[in-house]
Structure formats: structure tokens, C-alpha cells
Simulated scan of single mutants.
Amino acid sequence: MTFDIRIICDHHDTERVTAALADAFTTGTPRTYPTRDGMRTRLYLTADHKPTPTGEEPA
């Protein structure tokens, strides 16, 4: 089941935030847009839970 994530962050944090989300989820290509005031960035990602490794119980 996929879901969408939207995050508003400082421009210099976009790579770090995108990498952290990719570690936690299976993500698509991030889409970035400036906020209305132009001071921050809006990140949009489509994500899914990572598959459970074979032999492990889901958390």
C-alpha cells in the first residue's frame, strides 16, 4: 500500500530529509517546490513500507 508524504523544510535540509525517508521507506523520486513565501522547500514523495526481510516478524 503506497502513501504520500509532504514535508516542509529549509532548503539546505532537503537532501538529508530525502535520504532519511529513503532509509525508512521505499520512496519514489522526490518532487520539490518552493513554499509560497520562498523561504523553505516543500517535498512530496510517494512511499511504501519496506519489505520485511525473510524470516523476520513485522514490527
Rank of each mutant, 00 (worst) to 15 (best):
T35F: 14
P58Q: 09
D10A: 12
R31Y: 07
A24E: 13
D48G: 14
P51F: 06
T27M: 05
I8R: 11
D4F: 01
H12Y: 12
M1Q: 03
R40C: 02
P34R: 06
P51N: 10
D4R: 10
T41K: 09
D13Y: 05
A47N: 07
T54Q: 13
I8V: 15
I8F: 07
L45S: 05
G38S: 03
T35Y: 14
T27D: 02
E56R: 04
D23A: 13
L43P: 02
T2W: 03
A22T: 11
T26D: 12
A24R: 08
T14D: 08
M39F: 01
H12M: 12
M1T: 06
D10C: 00
H12F: 11
G38K: 02
L21K: 02
T41Q: 03
T2V: 03
R6E: 15
V17Q: 02
I7G: 01
T32A: 12
R6D: 13
M1N: 02
F3A: 01
P53V: 06
R16G: 12
F25V: 13
P34A: 13
A24P: 01
A19S: 10
G28T: 09
G38M: 06
T14H: 12
D4C: 01
D23S: 13
P53M: 06
L43Q: 05
L43A: 07
D23V: 06
